[in-house]
Simulated scan of single mutants.
Amino acid sequence: MIADKTTHRHFIIFKPFGYLSQFASNDSKQQSKKFLGSLHDFPEGIMAIGRLDEASEGLLLLTTDGKTSAHINSQKVDKEYYAQVDGVITNEAIEQLKTGVNITVEGELYKTKPCQAFKLKSIPDLPKRAKKIRDDRHGPTSWVSITLNEGKFRQVRKMTSVVGFPTLRLVRVRVGAIYVNAMDAGDVIEVDAFGVSIV
């Protein structure tokens, strides 16, 4: 039986700290890096929908369908991040994040769009990170939720830094209606669809 060429495959993964959001590299400088391809035997033509930088963790969607990728990458789909920041974040800083702050993107000044942001009341239940964050002996930390529908390079890290609370740990916990829930670092789940309607 010949496989249906229109049948696409979709995966939800929890990208661990220290992994690049790509599957392999021919760059000799990157041979010591960790790639998504080592987490699972993914099909040919698979692509990451958006990226998380090497130090960031959490929900990453993969697909062989370019239309699905383009839709989820668009500003129609929210992405929520939990950021552990250096210091006890203030209400003033939260308000600045919500209304938009000036960051640098490709050498140009850019004002972020209004977004949802709030301080988490307790430490979120997340997988243990491969590399330990400094402990409270070096000063207090706090957690903030930031939900964006744009995705400039290292945007969340730049935003929290601008308001005076640099990010120590960054985890994407939601894309649209898809949550990391009880996934552990490195988990890979194949799904029939993402449940995100494409109009």
Rank of each mutant, 00 (worst) to 15 (best):
residue 73 N to Y: 08
residue 92 E to P: 09
residue 72 I to Q: 04
residue 94 I to S: 00
residue 95 E to I: 13
residue 81 Y to P: 00
residue 93 A to E: 05
residue 74 S to Y: 07
residue 77 V to Y: 08
residue 97 L to H: 02
residue 112 T to L: 11
residue 84 Q to Y: 02
residue 91 N to T: 08
residue 90 T to W: 00
residue 82 Y to N: 03
residue 90 T to V: 04
residue 79 K to Y: 03
residue 107 G to V: 08
residue 97 L to P: 00
residue 78 D to L: 13
residue 79 K to T: 06
residue 103 I to Y: 10
residue 92 E to N: 09
residue 105 V to I: 14
residue 89 I to S: 00
residue 107 G to E: 05
residue 98 K to I: 06
residue 81 Y to W: 13
residue 96 Q to A: 13
residue 70 A to G: 06
residue 87 G to K: 04
residue 78 D to Y: 12
residue 80 E to A: 09
residue 87 G to H: 06
residue 75 Q to P: 12
residue 113 K to E: 12
residue 91 N to C: 06
residue 86 D to H: 03
residue 80 E to N: 03
residue 99 T to P: 04
residue 77 V to P: 02
residue 101 V to F: 01
residue 108 E to Q: 14
residue 108 E to S: 07
residue 113 K to F: 11
residue 71 H to D: 09
residue 82 Y to K: 08
residue 83 A to V: 01
residue 95 E to H: 09
residue 93 A to R: 03
residue 101 V to A: 01
residue 72 I to A: 05
residue 114 P to V: 13
residue 104 T to A: 10
residue 104 T to D: 09
residue 109 L to T: 13
residue 76 K to W: 15
residue 115 C to S: 09
residue 80 E to S: 13
residue 89 I to L: 04
residue 94 I to G: 01
residue 74 S to N: 06
residue 95 E to T: 14
residue 106 E to K: 12
residue 113 K to W: 10
residue 78 D to I: 13
residue 101 V to W: 05
residue 102 N to A: 11
residue 113 K to C: 07
residue 86 D to C: 07
residue 71 H to I: 10
residue 114 P to F: 12
residue 92 E to Y: 05
residue 91 N to K: 12
residue 105 V to K: 05
residue 83 A to K: 01
residue 103 I to G: 04
residue 110 Y to I: 07
